[in-house]
Design a protein around this nucleic acid. Structure first.
Length: 319
DNA sequence: AATATTCCCAACCGCCCTAGT
DNA sequence: CACTAGGGCGGTTGGGAATAT
């Protein structure tokens, strides 16, 4: 699953990242932030192009990234947003805290796309059988045959799919009887989408519950979907080896931030071997990405748990 | 057991946008 | 306005793992 390590013509390394490279990148970005991705590898002691460093950090090393095990709610959101936005993965990822555009894109291509296509086919078949069962008179509307849906229910607009309030009340009973997982497996995608609860502060950590009062609020079906507000970005610039290049933090840097102002420039700063004093780094920067209990899959479990160990080992080096 | 095929996802590539000059 | 650099985005690929034959 990993690319063979190699070097390009300019000597820059390509392919799989080693744990040592990860440590260097984590240490540098944690300490200084990403003031300039293109310059960063030189100062971080990495023989990588800046673009590769950025990608590695954004998609893999950045704290608070959620990996694997998509919940039915997350998948419903991805499918809905893809129907609305198309392949705008970054826009979709913006609605799913902790998920990266790359991972969402992969999950779409490997799993969700097929599921949506199957669901679409099943929907068409059910429409065909319905129309066959109906008498010619019943299947006419104002003298014209009703147009059978040639598109996926997921492709339909949000408002067109939205059930009426009477439909809501009749479906609520069924919904409370069945888990969201069962709804998913039964192909009730449209309704699962419709009942995806509004984002709350603890959306991703609270157990999934369904409260019909949430969706019966005025304009629920027509209001644009809102994600929780982004975390506040501290109003401090990262220390830059090139003061003229320092700039304000951009949203992508919000997790990379450390208050570098606590570490004043020292003599021989640019010539001393690079060392990071992680005692200066807030402990929350190294919150384990996952717990073993959250990922029961043995393979994924091992991979993710090793990543936790990587963080812990690294912190241990400086304690 | 050996081989072929498919799945999965980390990583790369090239294009585009934006800001600075 | 033109040019350049940096960063972001979406499409594609490489290759190990899993599954099928």
């Amino acid at each position: 699953m990993v690319r063979t390590p190699s070097r390009d013509k300019s000597g820059l390394k390509k392919g799989t990242w080693t744990p040592e490279e990860d440590r260097k990148l984590i240490a540098y970005v944690t300490r200084y932030g990403c003031w300039n991705w293109r310059q960063l590898p030189r100062f971080a002691g990495l023989a990588r192009c800046g673009k590769s460093c950025r990608l590695r950090w954004m998609n893999y090393l950045r704290p608070n990234i959620k990996r694997g095990n998509y919940s039915p709610e997350e998948e419903a959101i991805i499918i809905r947003l893809h129907a609305e936005l198309g392949n705008r993965w970054s826009a979709i990822a913006a609605q799913l805290p902790g998920r990266t555009d790359n991972e969402i894109k992969n999950h779409w291509h490997t799993s969700l796309k097929k599921r949506v296509q199957q669901d679409s086919v099943a929907h068409e078949k059910s429409q065909v059988s319905k129309s066959k069962d109906q008498s010619p008179i019943e299947s006419r509307d104002n003298g014209h045959f009703q147009e059978s849906s040639a598109t996926s229910p997921i492709s339909d607009s949000w408002t067109l799919m939205s059930p009426s309030s009477s439909e809501i009340s009749s479906i609520t009973t069924e919904t409370t009887a069945a888990s969201s997982q069962n709804l998913w497996l039964e192909g009730e995608l449209a309704f699962l989408e419709a009942y995806t609860e509004p984002m709350t502060e603890n959306f991703w950590t609270e157990p999934y519950t369904f409260d019909v009062s949430d969706i019966q609020s005025e304009n629920f079906w027509t209001e644009p979907f809102q994600s929780p507000a982004s975390p506040q970005i501290p109003d401090v610039c990262p220390l830059s080896p090139q003061p003229s290049s320092s700039g304000s933090l951009v949203p992508e840097d919000e997790f990379a931030f450390v208050d570098a102002s606590t570490e004043p420039m020292i003599d021989n700063f640019w010539t001393d071997p690079f060392m990071t004093d992680l005692s200066q780094v807030p402990s929350e920067m190294f919150t384990p990405l996952v717990t073993q209990q959250e990922y029961p899959s043995p393979l994924r479990d091992e991979q993710l748990w090793n990543q936790n160990i990587l963080y812990e080992e690294y912190i241990g080096l400086f304690q």
